[in-house]
Amino acid sequence: MSLFAFTKTVLGSMVSKPATRMYPFEVREAFPGTRGSIAIEIEKCIYCTLCARKCPTSAIVVNKAARSWEIDRLRCISCRACVEACPKDCLSQLTSYSPAVAIKGGKDFFHHPAPKVAAAPGAAPAQG
């Protein structure tokens, strides 16, 4: 018996499908709750800097005067603290991870300049 303990598993493996995937051609579907990379809808952002203050790794830098929001993807630990803190719900968490980068310190920069005076309805927003 003890000599052939592994036999059943071996025979099973010969007839069953592989447990692995052919990765680049077949990508695993992420679960809806997976904590992936952080995305922002910059139009809704009010630059309150709450996310930057809540971020445990200081990955987010918000500049109120320049109306910019940037995130260091390599510092971000996908903890979801910023998403939970955002008062305008403009931050969201994707289920996919951010792609690999070649340069350290590469930041994702979001900038949404707004006109000094509230734009009249129909007026084209200034492009930045």
């Binding site: 447990a19 679960f31 709750g33 997976t34 904590r35 630990i77 996908s78 903890c79 979801r80």
Partner: peptide
């Protein structure tokens, strides 16, 4: 490790992370 992967799937589905549950 093949079986561990199935456990990790449950973990990821319920917590959002594979090893860092958060």
């Amino acid at each position: 490790w093949r079986i561990r992967e199935k456990i990790l799937d449950i973990i990821e589905e319920t917590t959002g992370g594979r090893v860092i549950f958060g």
